[in-house]
Design a protein around this nucleic acid. Structure first.
Lengths: 343, 343
DNA sequence: GTAACGTCCGAAACGGCTTTCGAAGATTTT
DNA sequence: AAAATCTTCGAAAGCCGTTTCGGACGTTAC
């Protein structure tokens, strides 16, 4: 195990090195490299060659100091573990990276103190903007309006309408699910949801019910609430079938619940989707594509939500303003075998 | 939708503001705030009060420029989507954050060009170190030894032993799994793995076989390789049982495969764990705790691996060196119902 | 009383880049 | 040929801190 010496090598070239190597002053070198006018073509070429020769890369720290901005944004998550955070992160990192912006990742792990701490650190580092990513769609406390940089709340909206928030349209998602089932000819539709204290659960139920009413249908039985697990999906399905054996479709509040439901339906000898259709939410690929049959699900387009958050930051950076308020982003139906039999 | 004006408010106070407000020079203010000696107690107090009053927060950009280091490290992932990356990320972010270091997150999305691009950006931003997180445990190309900052490879080791790499001990993991089954009295143990081109698959199989041999046992049949999916778990299990109905335990290359296996065993009327024990790898909670019975699994301790990567960076920052080579981190057995019947 | 220290502060230089603005030189106009 | 106009460059100031180092002043030692 040889020690890996940190041979800092010849220290990186500075603009000053480039300038003297090209025989010009520092400002001229700067202008040449940045494509500013007022530099003769020949001179510019000399500078570029010198830069190339020394493999010069400008020190962004110095540049940021001079410019008063950093080309960075903070991604402040409340809980990295949360399954919904990652796709949002990916979308944001993707969009920002393409805009040459780098991302500071901070995980507050659900702790308000730590969040404040990270917030201060981000501001000290002079990020140009902040994206706050929550773990659920219930509103969260605002960071306040007095921050010196634009802030975008993603997934969990801010509790203040003076902030700019992006969240999935869960009500629309519920509607989408119900309409799909109705369109495939189902009429006795029940709903098994997750934790009733989640606003997402309520919103989806509301949307689904509205769609049913619009179609002149009544939901079968009360919505069953408990937890977002396969276990609950199994238990709730037994319960549901014993009370309402006539159901021909189940809307499940999450893919996990749906997996449980499908499991139990198999056990009870009900065929999916012939006898009973099942639809989930989240479009969690690993679960959805590995069940028998594969699971139809509503995708919240989270990666797109992350991208939109980035775009909002961009626009705030240009125009200096955001269209404050709560913006709901559309969801998307992904049809698989659990609602339509491949014939 | 009122426009959210970006009232930059009174621009953040600078050290100069604090100094003049306290009636001292800038250097004195600096020393006072940084706890340097050569400042009279009374003066220091005046400065601290002034800073408090103006809610002064030092501009880290300026400070970094002066210091020649930034207190940031780059997290360069090859693919954020990869399920194994997130826990490593969390561990690293956690450990680094506690050390007051902030993290630049970069996702190369499997593209070498993009990776180079991000690498350059990170170096321009003068990160103090880089953690490279791969998506699988197969070695990846080294970034080279000539970088001006310490680099740690996590999960996917570098293909050069002159770099510092951390990866889970997959061979040990396989051994752990087999030994557990043996300890619970199983003797006819088969192995269903995933994609045979993954080194992780091979390593685990090797470890498991070694453990069996050590116990004077022979594996039942050849290891079955294909993909890391539930589907394969189901198919492989049918196949296995038709060929070797006598098996009393199955080592599955991933929790997904294990889920599939359990599914099929239920269908075939074999009880788990009474008739056949099943063990998986990854300890993917959502899968492991929601199966019937819950799934015993080998946990790769990825969060810990991330933390170790951070620790390595720290030590490199202090001492300027790393103990080059490939370091394998221990895995951990998590026992649930699929191998031991709750009595 | 002077010499020898100590304590406390601030002028100056520095980090690496950008921007402004005036001046030198080249070019055009009359 | 002189005047007016461009073009091209670099001195200087600025971004916001940190560090060095010498000087002013107060103490203690003789």
């Amino acid at each position: 195990m040889a020690s890996l010496e940190q041979l800092d090598g010849p220290r990186p070239a500075t603009l000053s090195d480039v300038a003297s190597s090209a025989g010009v002053s520092i400002p001229t070198a700067s202008k040449a490299l940045n494509g500013r006018p007022d530099v003769a073509e020949r001179t510019r070429r000399r500078v570029l060659e010198a830069a190339e020769r020394l493999s010069f890369a400008p020190n962004e720290v110095a540049r940021n100091l001079a410019a008063g901005k950093t080309g960075t944004v903070g991604l402040l998550t409340s809980d990295l573990e949360g399954r919904f955070v990652l796709p949002i992160l990916m979308g944001a990192e993707d969009a920002l990276g393409a805009g040459q912006i780098n991302v500071f990742l901070c995980d507050a792990r659900g702790d308000a103190i730590r969040e404040q701490h990270h917030l201060r650190a981000l501001l000290s580092r002079r990020v140009d903007g902040i994206i706050v990513v929550g773990r659920q769609t219930d509103p969260r406390e605002s960071l306040g309006q007095k921050l010196p940089v634009p802030v975008v709340y993603a997934y969990a909206p801010s509790d203040s309408l003076r902030d700019y928030s992006l969240t999935p349209d869960n009500e629309g998602a519920g509607r989408l699910a119900a309409e799909h089932l109705i369109a495939t000819g189902r009429t006795r539709i029940a709903h098994i949801s997750g934790d009733s204290t989640y606003q997402a659960a309520q919103d989806r139920v509301r949307g689904a019910c509205a769609a049913l009413l619009d179609a002149g249908l009544q939901p079968v039985g009360e919505t069953l609430f408990s937890s977002w697990t396969e276990h609950w999906g199994r238990d709730a399905t037994s319960l549901l079938l014993s009370r309402h054996p006539e159901v021909d479709a189940i809307i499940c509040g999450s893919d996990q619940i749906a997996r449980g439901a499908i499991d139990t339906l198999r056990d009870l000898g009900r065929r999916v989707p012939e006898d009973i259709a099942v639809i989930g939410f989240d479009n969690w690929e690993v679960l959805a594509t590995n069940s028998r049959p594969e699971l139809t699900s509503i995708d919240a387009n989270l990666q797109n939500l992350g991208r939109e958050a980035a775009r909002a930051i961009f626009s705030a950076l240009d125009t200096g303003g955001l269209d404050a308020g709560l913006h709901r982003l559309p969801t998307r139906l992904v049809i698989r075998g659990s609602t339509i039999s491949r014939r």
